[in-house]
Amino acid sequence: MMTMDAQERPNSMPDRRPRVSVVCPFYNEEQIIERATLEMCERLQASFPGDFELIMVNDGSTDGSHDHLIEALQTVKLGPVRVLSYPFNQGRGRALKTGIDAARGDIIVTTEADGSWGEDIVARLVAFLDTYPAYDFVVASPHRSGGGLVQVDPRRAFLSRAGNWLIRNLFESNVTMNTGMTRAYRRSVIQPLVVFESGKEFHLEVLLKLLALNFVAGEIPAVLTWQTHRLARDPTAKRKSSTRIRRTIFTHLRFLVMAQPVRHFAVLGAATSLLSLIFLALAMRNLFIGEPSGLFALVGLNLILFTLMLIGTAVTLYQVREVMIENWMKYYPKPHPPSARPLKTEHGFTAD
């Protein structure tokens, strides 16, 4: 169950719909939550005077994050801030979806509140969608030319680069940051999307589904800086990442199998069919020279059967995927956004 604080009750909201909604989830961030939120409000007020809302989603924090934030917002009035709260932790994906569903702006931005993606990142994302109306959403990427990773643990930086390279090539996507949270969507594109993942896999699920529905993605370079002390109440406190690397890798691979089933199983099928031909050729050779050939023939035939199973699995998963896509589209009110299915348009991306 989600609770509402005084900052977000309906009678405290302006009647006019804001142009930009910014959604920032947080969990156990009592060291930085006050200054991060206040600085985010100041940046939004400078970029979109009176035409924004900031939605902070408390994902069941067990420290003083929520109380510190409410106290700060009651002390300093900076703009329309809404605080949504869960009584227990449900995961970043669920927090983001909750904030997205509550957003009223025409453009919805999801990002970290601490400015780790750059102080101007929200303005740049919104400017991109304003400048290029053919794009449905835009992703901030440290892997684009002009972007980068600063003060990020080398192991995590390597996994990010390698993982996104793998996803990009397996999914045939030009997006270089498939797993990042910092993005901007048109409200008509993101709010109707059916999403099931509650954790950080949410980012990849959203991206793969939007691309499967033929929505058009853009991308801008951004520098991601791991913030440690700048906003902390206690300068000696250290922030910890909540990413579970093994679980994240497993779930991301699962998404990729469903995203491109024919391609992945076709590669396996080609490999097993080649092996079957080799074993059958060996069986024929042994037959002609009078050597035992039964084992080679048996292995070759079994590999042929396995190849047929892979082909059948690929076809089945493809059909399941198509049915799922049709079901996702049912949640989009007519008329559908121009780039969505059933139009057969290619995905467009910006140059570096």
Rank of each mutant, 00 (worst) to 15 (best):
R247C: 03
G300F: 04
W226C: 05
P133E: 13
Q191Y: 14
I220A: 04
L73Q: 02
T3K: 02
H229E: 15
A271N: 01
S145A: 04
V189N: 08
T225H: 11
S116Q: 13
N169K: 09
S21C: 09
I289Y: 15
P18A: 10
M177R: 04
P342D: 06
R161S: 06
E29K: 00
E205Q: 13
Y135K: 01
V76A: 08
V23T: 10
P10L: 08
V109Q: 12
E112Y: 14
I55V: 11
E326A: 07
V223N: 04
L193F: 05
D114N: 03
G93H: 02
H203G: 00
I325Y: 05
G348S: 13
L73A: 11
V152F: 06
I32T: 15
G199N: 08
Q74G: 15
L211M: 12
I311A: 11
Q227H: 09
V194Y: 06
L210V: 05
F279Y: 15
F250G: 02
K209A: 02
R254H: 03
V122A: 03
A6I: 08
G105H: 09
Q45T: 00
E119S: 14
H143L: 15
L69I: 05
R155A: 04
A351T: 03
L231H: 12
Q319P: 01
L44W: 10
D130N: 13
A237F: 05
A259K: 11
L231M: 01
I311N: 08
V122N: 04
N169Q: 09
Q31T: 00
A6L: 01
G312E: 12
A281V: 09
S293M: 11
A134P: 09
L275R: 12
T75F: 00
G115R: 05
I311R: 11
L282M: 15
H336F: 00
T3C: 01
L305G: 15
D59N: 14
D51A: 02
T111F: 03
F288E: 02
E71N: 11
P342E: 04
A46S: 11
W117K: 06
T228Y: 01
A6V: 14
F88W: 02
L54I: 07
M40P: 06
L310I: 02
L149A: 07
G79K: 07
P133V: 04
I55D: 07
Y332M: 07
E326Q: 13
W226T: 06
V320Y: 05
P87G: 06
R94F: 07
G269C: 14
R230L: 09
S85D: 00
I249N: 02
R244I: 09
R239M: 11
F202V: 09
N89E: 05
R161K: 12
A351C: 07
Y185H: 06
F171R: 12
R161L: 08
A157L: 06
A72M: 06
T62A: 10
E197R: 12
Q31W: 01
Q260C: 03
H68R: 08
V257C: 10
P342W: 08
V57T: 05
T37K: 03
E8D: 13
D234H: 04
A281H: 08
M4D: 01
M13L: 15
A270L: 13
E30P: 00
A283N: 14
G269K: 07
H229G: 12
